[in-house]
Design a protein around this nucleic acid. Structure first.
Lengths: 347, 347
DNA sequence: ATGGCAATCTGTAACGTTTCAGGTTATTGA
DNA sequence: TCAATAACCTGAAACGTTACAGATTGCCAT
């Protein structure tokens, strides 16, 4: 159906929402002038500018996104690309809140672009670029050699990664210092007299797996304690797999007496596994875990935790992308969040 | 900057992504014909239709969203309106996954429109409608007399609510049967011999608060047991508030020996409160809790749980909105999810 | 042959915006 | 006084799409 107004050449514009044409008619100016007045162009007289802006405010003019997008290619959209299967629950909500809090007083909208386990992580990114659906992109599950980052860098599309890459290319990112986390966790436990350490690491392939493993290994050798490997189990595995594997581990003679866990949900499974093996948290073994929201202390108050804020990650990432879109140097839009103190709840 | 191609009247179109004009040139047809051929209009010859579609597929033609939107007003966008402060963590991620899984093989994009505690919940909805930013809207935290639903109904904007309203107006919704949940929870606990019940309810004002309270109260009188009121504390309160209040409650002489909790996160606090009071879960008191992901059994295996799937809610809501947009009767797009059996983990 | 009709196809205009290439005044300098 | 100039303003075109209102062609009944 054709939405054209009944009057062919209407200047009445009583109906529908106001456009530049409406403003032009109301102010008696040309559409061009109105357009420029609204964006503070210098060749518009100061009074005209004020007048136009006043009227625009009064009648609640909002630029039509489709018009702008068609004409300029600017979408005013930031896309958050998420893995539907793997992302941690709190990750998604917190990061969205972080992003939206930054985006709130800008014309940007946030669209969520999902991809599933089976898909190539490049698919959603390629889709966004090929269809020109976003001005900026936020990606997570970053890899050391990340095809998506390379691709986006090649086409000059502003983006930010949650986690760093390691390809010698510079781009905005936000990351949590997982090296420091794992390192300090080991030192903390060693300081309590713990000797044999296990690490439940992030999935192999993601950059922060390396960071975590390195921080862990370096601390082990620095304080002179040994490792009991978790083998192939990572925080990406199911609760049941982690629980079973932990129980196995805890039944060995050389079982760990200190465990470092990279995710709060996995820590629940670890503790369950410990107790399945008939051992007691805080007596037979201590656990330091990352968490992104304050709830582990309710679970077992013997747990030691380090907080990682995904809300902060979301806002930093949004700031980074907007910064890049706004012309800032990509290299200046990188941030690394340091872990706080290990927190104790036991009393 | 003007993005116009270098050749004023180019039919070469080697650069940029293909448009209808490109297709028209390649097939030797008019732009109109191509447009109609792609949407299977009947007045286009069968062979022409196939030819155009073949070429379109070959060169990877994708309609320009801005063009379509400007011309037709169709945005191909569904907006999920979220309260930034209150929504439960798992709620957000699961519902997004549910929505995106349905939307995945449609041209729709999902945009997340946030609003904060301080804002009128109408604000984001009004914004979406006034700027014509979405073809369909999903809202949560539904109230019995919901201004947003009324508003959207008035302007004929397709939407679906998570939770029902109670205004005598018909619109799509998805809801979990919280009446049944609370009712069955009480019956279950009463069946174990529990006598004095407390309910940690959803926030007053939301429709499902009423459902939950009614299901709870009806069961109490049906099985002839009494209530120990939680008073003004609801699942919207902070962990600490719930914990403190629970501890207070548990120190009373007529303390509850059966508690029904409407949210998993709150249940953590309830258990902490119970233990703060020196009591033991499973011995002095039993708790039935809703949860949206399987983790409470790891927390305390004495907990009884009933699962509510927000992923299902997300997909049902998306289906409902798309159905309405597609012309289905709003009344036919309502679904109510029944709680499953109370789950036991204790062994 | 001719008028009518069905089957296909097409050009134009319009959605709301921005850019380009001027146009109109008033003012300045000589 | 007159040309040059600055300061402001403007119409037209274009982004990619779809609806409208025809064109064109071939075929059939008369």
């Amino acid at each position: 159906m054709d939405r054209r107004r009944t009057e062919k050449n209407d200047e009445t514009s009583a109906q529908g929402r106001p456009t530049l044409k409406t403003l032009a008619f109301m102010t008696g100016l040309g559409v061009t002038t109105v357009s420029r007045a609204l964006k503070d162009a210098p060749e518009i007289g100061a009074e005209t500018r004020r007048r136009v802006q006043l009227v625009a405010k009064q009648i609640g003019y909002r630029p039509n996104r489709a018009g702008v997008r068609l004409r300029t290619g600017k979408t005013n959209v930031i896309s958050l690309v998420l893995n539907t299967e793997h992302e941690l629950m709190s990750f998604v909500s917190d990061i969205i809140y972080g992003v939206t809090s930054v985006i709130a007083d800008t014309p940007y909208h946030l669209i969520v672009t999902p991809y599933s386990r089976s898909q190539d992580p490049m698919d959603p990114v390629r889709y966004l670029v090929e269809t020109g659906s976003a001005d900026g992109i936020i990606i997570s599950r970053t890899q050391p050699d990340d095809a998506r980052a390379r691709y986006l860098l090649e086409r000059g599309i502003p983006f930010a990664t949650h986690g760093r890459t390691d390809m010698g290319l510079v781009h905005p990112y936000h990351d949590f210092d997982n090296y420091a986390f794992a390192n300090e966790a080991v030192r903390y436990l060693a300081g309590m007299g713990r000797q044999r350490f296990a690490l439940l690491a992030p999935p192999v392939g993601l950059t922060y797996h390396g960071h975590t493993v390195n921080g862990f290994a370096d601390a082990l050798s620095e304080v002179g304690v040994s490792e009991v490997p978790f083998n192939t189990v990572t925080i990406d595995q199911s609760i049941e797999q982690i629980r079973t594997r932990t129980a196995q581990l805890m039944r060995r003679n050389d079982r760990p007496d200190g465990i470092v866990s990279s995710a709060a949900a996995s820590t629940l499974a670890i503790v369950a596994g410990i107790e399945d093996a008939g051992l007691e948290l805080g007596r037979d073994v201590d656990v330091v875990s990352k968490q992104s929201s304050e709830f582990l202390h309710l679970f077992r108050r013997e747990l030691f935790v380090v907080n990682e804020s995904f809300r902060l990650a979301g806002s930093e990432l949004a700031r980074a992308v907007l910064g890049w879109i706004g012309g800032a140097e990509p290299g200046s839009l990188q941030s690394l969040s340091k872990p706080g103190e290990v927190q104790v709840y036991r009393r």
